[in-house]
Design a protein around this nucleic acid. Structure first.
Lengths: 147, 147
DNA sequence: ACAAATGATACCAATATGATATCATTACAT
DNA sequence: ATGTAATGATATCATATTGGTATCATTTGT
């Protein structure tokens, strides 16, 4: 059971790092700070850029900046870039008509659980992560104030 | 985001089917009823057997029977046979010391969500699935009575 | 001895994951 | 104008997981 992949994890770190900076930041600098393999970090930053989460500037002194406020970047949207849709529609049984009532019930249970995960991923933002981490974990249980 | 794999799904169907039967049941019969490819069903039944959920009898007139009451077979245990441990320990960061507080916070959130999933999978049993399905979905919201 | 069953494995194709490498393009500085 | 520092786009690769098949060994009732 793996809710987020390494790409998503790295993306979150990149977004958090850029939240604390006002200037454009080049990949080389991020690599230095975040210990993520250069080529990999580059690809992740590019994907975030294409997705509109980062704004990029090419050429000399180029680099990346956050396109939105940390508070407005939802974990769900980050995760979907790298892990595909979290939509509840694509369950195992997509293509066939419900074979019997029993497995239908299971399916409903699974969908309920997935919905819970979806809600959590939707309400958690980069801002929450920054806040949760910077005050030594004391604000740990405050992250749902926007629900 | 896929909470259960096809093996687990098929295993649940097999367990549900055997719940409704008192005699030993051979793979051929299950295949007829459950529309699962023979070789695949066989492998799944064997794994369930090795895990102690089914009791098998070899030879002429052999087959499988449930080893426990439906109410005592937890979805968690079924899923773990096919999908490995749902333990919360194996997060992405297993091998390294927590690189910074921000991602630690993320990790805690992820672990909390995983714990929720774990709880659900633990409380749901084959018995619940049978009950949920057999009364035309009317008992849909009753499945947590044992929590 | 035969046939009907499971046990144990080995294998295979497709996809996802984690990561690297390369060439093209842009843009500043001189 | 040219070199260099940057991102853009993509191709490639190794490994693991998933979904499924095939085969041979073993057991057992008739």
């Amino acid at each position: 059971m793996k809710l987020i992949t390494r790409d998503t994890d790295y993306a979150v770190r990149i977004l958090c790092y850029l939240s604390g900076k006002n200037e454009r930041t080049a990949v080389v600098e991020m690599v230095r700070e975040l210990k993520i393999p250069t080529a990999f970090l580059r690809r992740i930053a590019q994907r975030l850029s294409r997705a509109g989460m980062l704004t990029s500037v090419k050429g000399f002194n180029g680099g990346f900046t956050l396109s939105a406020k940390p508070r407005d970047i939802r974990l769900l949207d980050v995760a979907e870039i790298f892990q595909g849709s979290f939509s509840l529609n694509d369950c195992l049984f997509k293509r066939r008509i419900c074979p019997d009532r029993k497995t239908c019930f299971l399916r409903r249970q699974i969908l309920d659980i997935e919905k819970y995960v979806l809600d959590k991923f939707t309400s958690l933002t980069i801002g929450d992560i920054l806040a949760g981490g910077s005050i030594d974990g004391q604000k740990k249980n405050n992250q749902h104030r926007r629900k």
